[in-house]
């Protein structure tokens, strides 16, 4: 499959094997620029493995992951070391089990994510920290930006609290805010709605729409909560046992017999849940 003209992310024939286990098998899909693309599938389908390959946690056994910026620059993510993926390719991610810096304040979590801007402002050196004017300015700008995202995620009052002490839903939002502070072009969210109640899920939908609309960031999303997936996704890719079984618009996915079969193949309650959520 060749990349569509405006695909921000093109995954081509990606495979990831762990010993004899094939977690992802010959997977190809595109994520369009400015779209919210959802990656769904039953537990163990290989969704998080795909994320780990995109963000440099794993080195894929085979295949190519191409990310292209608006200006035409392209990066082969499988060849970049992890911190370059954030620094050059500008991909940010969040985790299924939240990974903040728990011993730093919420604000510091957001400022440390702006490392690269501050790094450049301090002249990439030790001396820069001690008194370069550009560093002082950049540091203030970084704090302003952090406050902006705290405000956007409804955490403005919690800026000076330790991240580890925030409530679960707040930690989820802070993690998204931190990812946004790295100035990404592609934001990868691993189950952002997990553990959120209905009201918080609705707020999350609004936040994600805002990020896409006002910041032009494309989103790739793993999610089990169908109320989130069906409502905000432009495009859905369905995985089962590491293989892509469907790829299309939410409406098409909802009616795809293969998708329903994949969900039927798992435990009863999850089937009922899935059926209820897709409205069958």
């Amino acid at each position: 499959m060749s990349a569509a003209p405006d695909a921000i992310l093109a995954v081509e024939r990606l495979s990831m094997r762990f010993g004899g286990l094939v977690a992802v098998d010959d997977l190809s899909f595109n994520a369009q620029r400015g779209h919210i693309t959802a990656l769904i599938g039953p537990n163990g389908a290989g969704k998080t493995t795909v994320f780990n390959c995109i963000t440099g946690f794993y080195k894929p056994s085979a295949g190519m992951i191409r990310l292209s910026h608006r200006d035409g620059q392209t990066f082969l993510l499988e060849r970049l070391i992890d911190f370059r993926i954030a620094q050059w390719a500008k991909v940010a991610r969040t985790f299924q089990n939240i990974r903040l810096f728990p011993g730093m304040t919420a604000l510091e979590n957001l400022v440390v994510a702006q490392h690269n801007v501050l790094m450049a402002a301090s002249g990439f050196s030790f001396v820069g920290l001690l008194g370069l004017k550009s560093y002082g300015t950049a540091e203030r700008a970084a704090v302003d930006k952090a406050r902006y995202w705290l405000d956007r995620t409804g955490l403005l009052g919690r800026g000076d609290d330790l991240a580890g002490g925030l409530a679960y839903g707040e930690q989820r939002r802070l993690e998204i805010a931190r990812a946004m502070c790295t100035d990404p072009v592609l934001l990868c969210l691993d189950e952002p709605a997990a553990g959120l109640n209905a009201r918080e899920s609705a707020e999350l939908n609004d936040l994600l729409r805002f990020i896409r609309r006002d910041h032009g960031v494309s989103i790739l999303l793993i999610e089990h909560d169908m109320s989130v997936v069906m409502e905000i996704s432009d495009h859905i890719v369905v995985l089962d046992y590491g293989v892509k079984i469907a790829d299309g618009s939410p409406a098409a996915i909802r009616d795809d017999p293969k998708v329903i079969a994949a969900y039927l193949g798992v435990e009863d309650e999850e089937v009922e849940q899935a059926e209820a959520e897709v409205g069958r």
Binding site: F57, F83, A86, R93, T182
Partner: peptide, 9 residues
């Protein structure tokens, strides 16, 4: 690991 994901070398 997380530090490297926000771009820290």
């Amino acid at each position: 690991k997380m530090a490297s994901l926000v771009g820290i070398n």
